[in-house]
């Protein structure tokens, strides 16, 4: 077939160009809708207050000099610094709990040919779908029994209810791709099953484990309901809750600082999530593609 095609570079290039233009034209509205809110938040964050409320001039650029004072306000007049520390500590402990439980579980489900392994795996994954809105009231009782209300430790206890199911499933898929031979070789060399896991399988599995840590972080950052229900003391709040509740005083919205505080944490999370998005999609649809 290919030999019969007469090369027609010029018209072909035109066709390519037209196709590109069509695709770009189709994508433009999507891009504008997706990106404009971020642009608007960013520009709001560094505008002066008075600049926000000038209704006559075009609002898409600065009418007055840009300023960092909204960021100053966050760090000097609110507990923003504490919220960042809380968020990091929560994410750290949630990741630790998740890795310590999901790595062994994912490994056992993927490689030890256990009876009921598939059903158990699906069962654990299904718990990811029991939504927070059904669990938050009984968990409020659990939190108060543990005497953790109004402490960010409550969130450390609760977030693994969704990170463990997700990461177990993700790691199960990951461990299935590690060749069986390397484990068998290690066991022939005198390692026990546990020794093989520790010395041979884990060292080659770090990409999967890093991915699981990333998702423990980003999924923890996506929560709003649990923090809203369990933490009401300002100093104990994580960033999303703190920004959403402490920068609105009655009817007064500190829009500049609100946007500054939201983006300062939102943008890094979005970037990391973006880089790992394909792994997230594989994580939840993996079984359907295989």
């Amino acid at each position: 077939m290919a030999t019969l095609v007469v090369p027609a570079p010029r018209s072909q290039r035109h066709k390519e160009l037209r196709r590109h233009l069509l695709v770009y034209a189709g994508l433009t509205p999507f891009l504008v809708i997706a990106v404009f809110p971020i642009f608007w938040m960013a520009i709001t964050a560094i505008k002066q207050d008075a600049d926000l409320y000038l209704v006559d001039a075009v609002p898409f650029w600065f009418r007055q000099a840009p300023t960092w004072k909204n960021f100053d306000f966050l760090f000097h007049n609110t507990s923003y610094g504490a919220w960042i520390v809380n968020t990091m500590l929560i994410s750290f402990w949630v990741s630790a709990i998740t890795i310590l439980t999901a790595v062994p579980a994912g490994y056992a489900l993927a490689r030890l040919r256990l009876p009921f392994a598939e059903n158990l795996g699906i069962g654990i994954f299904m718990t990811y779908l029991v939504p927070a809105i059904i669990l938050f009231i009984p968990l409020a009782r659990v939190v108060s029994t543990l005497d953790l209300q109004d402490s960010w430790w409550a969130l450390v206890v609760v977030y693994p209810t969704f990170t463990i199911p997700f990461c177990t499933w993700l790691l199960m898929g990951f461990f299935k791709t590690v060749p069986f031979e390397i484990e068998e070789a290690a066991m022939v060399d005198g390692c026990g099953q546990f020794g093989a896991l520790l010395r041979v399988v884990l060292p080659v599995s770090w990409p999967g484990i890093i991915t699981a840590i990333i998702f423990s972080f980003t999924l923890s950052m996506q929560d709003f309901l649990y923090s809203l229900a369990f933490v009401s003391i300002s100093e104990e709040k994580p960033v999303p809750l703190g920004v959403a509740t402490e920068l609105i005083r009655g009817d007064i919205y500190f829009w500049g600082s609100l946007m500054a505080g939201a983006l300062l944490v939102g943008v890094p999370v979005a970037i990391v999530y973006n880089l790992f998005l394909d792994k997230f999609i594989t994580g939840i649809t993996g079984a359907a593609i295989k």
Partner: peptide, 8 residues
Amino acid sequence: PIAVSVLG
């Protein structure tokens, strides 16, 4: 994060 974009 959802709370962030909703504020925007």
